[in-house]
Every structure is written in C-alpha cells, then in structure tokens.
C-alpha cells in the first residue's frame, strides 16, 4: 500500500503542481471499476513479491548461517575472533584509544580543509605572481597522492626525529598527525580543484560582467557552487580519514588499533581487533549512509537545474 501511495505522488508531480485541482472535479471523482481492479491487481502483485523476497532471504541467509555454525572449524573460529566476554573486558581501553583517533580526525579535518582549499585556489588561479607556488603545489599533489600513506607516516614519524633539529618535536602523535595532514591535503586539494573546474565558465563570465573582481567571483559565485558539488566526495574522504588515523599506531601512538594490538598480543586472542573494527564501523557506516544520501540529493539538484 505504501508503494501505491508513493507511485501516485510521483505521478502527480509529473503532471505538474496543479494536477490535483485540475483533475479533481470538485471532489466528486470516484475511481472507476477498471481503476479499482487495477489497484487490486497491483496490491496482490506487491504482496506476492514481498512474500517471495522474505522466503528467499530466510533460506539463503539462514542456510549460510547453519553451514557456518555446524562446520568443524566454527568453535575454533569463534574462540579466536568472537570471544565476547574478553572483548567487553578490553573495550574501555579500545574506546580510550579511539578518542585519539577522533581527536586526530578533528584536527586533521580542520587543517586539511584550510590547506586543501588554499592549494586548490593556487592551482586554479592564473595570476603570474603565483607561478612558483603553482609549480610547487602541482609537484606536492603529484607526489603525495601517488605514494602510500604508510610511507609518509614512517618518513615523518621516524625520519624527522632522526634529523635531531632543535625545536622540532619528537612527539609521535604530532608527527603522525602531520603525516596524515600532508597526505590528505593532497587528496582534498584535488577534489576541490575538480569542483572549481566543473563550474561552467559562463558563470564566471556572468559574475565578471557584473563588475565582480576575481576574489568576489570566487567567493560568491564559484566556490559555493563548487562545494555543493564536491560535498559527497569530500565526505568520502572524511570516512577514509577516520580509518586512516589508525595507521599512526605504527609510530606507537596508543589509538584504538594500538590498544587492540596490545590487548591481543597479551592473550593471543584476536577478539580485541574485532572490537576495534566494530568501534570504527559504528562511526563510519552512519557517515557512509549520510554520504550516499547527500550524493543522491546533489544529483537530484543537478538534474533539476539541467531541466530548467
């Protein structure tokens, strides 16, 4: 029945806003026999589809579960990965570590947004004075987008302290954070740049013909539209960033991954890793769903503009 209603909604939208008043002759209209029969047939078909879907899901998923649980290795598997009592015991430590991941993500997001936007602006501008910066920005993006982030973390985290320069920190947390920022700035700069380039030149022409200068055109016309367009890919990068903060554990930062590693090596049981995975998923899955919804909205918006 719910299906029925939404189908009618979209039909009335298709006919234009006034379809209701246009075809509703003073509220006296009653569906014809033929229409009633059609609706009944549709309802019947929907009901049958729902039953088939439920039965098929039950047998396939249930069957797989039975096969897994009854297989000879199941006991060993669940003892190794899903020992819930132990998992709950180590959870506080993992959560404490996860606070580090969240802190890293928050600070990195702010810095990456600022530096990413700056680099995107430098790369898209044509000002002659910025030429050396444009070259540097291009090289920077090419290099750091093209090497594994783990390598950057190792280089910064172990390499910088090896220089033994006075005043430079040896704090692994700050060094790890720096490596994350360096890498993600390169990703985000490219996403924002592609957004800026995706705005049709006619928008720039219209803004300039109104007397707006370059900065005003960027600030009021190009960037607002560009950001709307790249919000979904930026959210994707945010999800990836949350996960990738786990990589700084290699430097000895006690984050959720490191906390799980310590707990696991103490007991030779891998449940702490699974717990850490679940903690990450609790944040990343809702964020991914949110990203999907934003993407869908953004596509609808662009389609609406295309129709106009």
């Amino acid at each position: 029945m719910k299906n029925e209603a939404s189908r009618e909604d979209s039909a009335s939208q298709f006919n234009g806003e006034n379809s209701q008043s246009k075809y509703d002759f003073g509220g006296k209209w009653q569906p014809s026999e033929l229409e009633l029969a059609r609706r009944a047939a549709r309802a019947k078909r929907n009901k049958r589809s729902a039953i088939i879907a439920a039965l098929s899901s039950f047998f396939v998923l249930g069957g797989l579960a039975v096969i897994a649980v009854t297989s000879p290795g199941w006991k060993l598997l669940s003892d190794t990965f899903f020992k819930w009592a132990y998992g709950v015991e180590v959870l506080p430590k993992i959560l404490l570590g996860f606070i580090t991941n969240i802190t890293l993500t928050t600070i990195a997001t702010i810095c990456v947004a600022f530096f990413g936007l700056s680099i995107a602006l430098v790369r898209t501008s044509k000002a002659p004075a910025l030429t050396p910066f444009r070259i540097l920005a291009t090289v920077y993006v090419d290099v750091f987008r093209g090497i594994p982030m783990l390598l950057v973390i190792l280089l910064v985290g172990f390499g910088v302290p090896a220089l033994q320069i006075q005043g430079l920190t040896n704090n692994v947390l700050i060094l790890g954070l720096t490596a994350v920022i360096i890498t993600y700035t390169a990703y985000v700069a490219e996403v924002i740049r592609s957004g800026i380039l995706s705005i049709h030149p006619s928008q720039r022409a219209a803004a300039r013909s109104l007397g707006l200068n370059y900065v005003q055109t960027m600030r009021h016309v190009i960037l607002p539209q560009a950001f709307r367009r790249v919000t979904p890919p930026l959210l994707n990068d945010l999800v990836a960033l949350i996960k990738d903060t786990g990589l700084v554990s290699i430097l000895g930062v006690t984050d959720a991954v490191r906390a799980a590693q310590i707990a696991s090596s103490r007991s030779f049981n891998y449940t702490p890793y699974v717990m850490a995975a679940i903690v990450f998923l609790l944040i990343t899955i809702p964020l991914t769903r949110f990203t999907d919804r934003t993407l869908r909205k953004s596509i609808e918006q662009q389609n609406a503009q295309g129709l106009a």
Binding site: S202, Q203, A205, A206, A207, S209, L210, G211, H220, V221
Partner: peptide
C-alpha cells in the same frame, strides 16, 4: 564592466 550590463543567451543566473 560595472558600467556595462550584459545579458547572455543561456541566462547565466547563479
């Protein structure tokens, strides 16, 4: 440009 108004074929509204 602020002394010259221009209107385009494709409107180019923001």
């Amino acid at each position: 440009r602020r002394k010259i108004g221009m209107v385009f074929q494709a409107f180019n509204l923001f």
